[in-house]
Design a protein around this nucleic acid. Sequence first.
DNA 1: GTTGTGACGGGTC
DNA 2: CGACCCGCCACAA
Length: 103
Amino acid sequence: MTFAEMVYALCRTIPAGKVTTYKALARALGISSSQAVGQALKRNPYAPLVPCHRVIKSDGSIGGFKGKIVGTEIEEKVRLLEREGITISQGMVDLVKFGWFEI
DNA sequence: GTTGTGACGGGTC
DNA sequence: CGACCCGCCACAA
């Protein structure tokens, strides 16, 4: 069980209609660096299995999915999140309402 | 074993 | 509010 595996396992537990942050996941794994979580998600071999689109930055912004925010590429993911009931304004998610962690 | 870098966070300037 | 710098952990070269 590698660090990345634990990240994937944790992401799978994210309920639909909720989002979490890199920091929250990192903290749940016992570390302080959210970058490590990003590394794992970025290289996730479980693309559709792990809902990486539900993992966002702590400030509510989407962050990135395939590398960086590239124009309308994000729009597709935003639409998917909205389908789960998550409201997004200008690429920002309301963590107070949809944050899957103790706010 | 060392170095560099990244889907990041927080604090300062 | 935006730009900059430092810290942070894991992984690839």
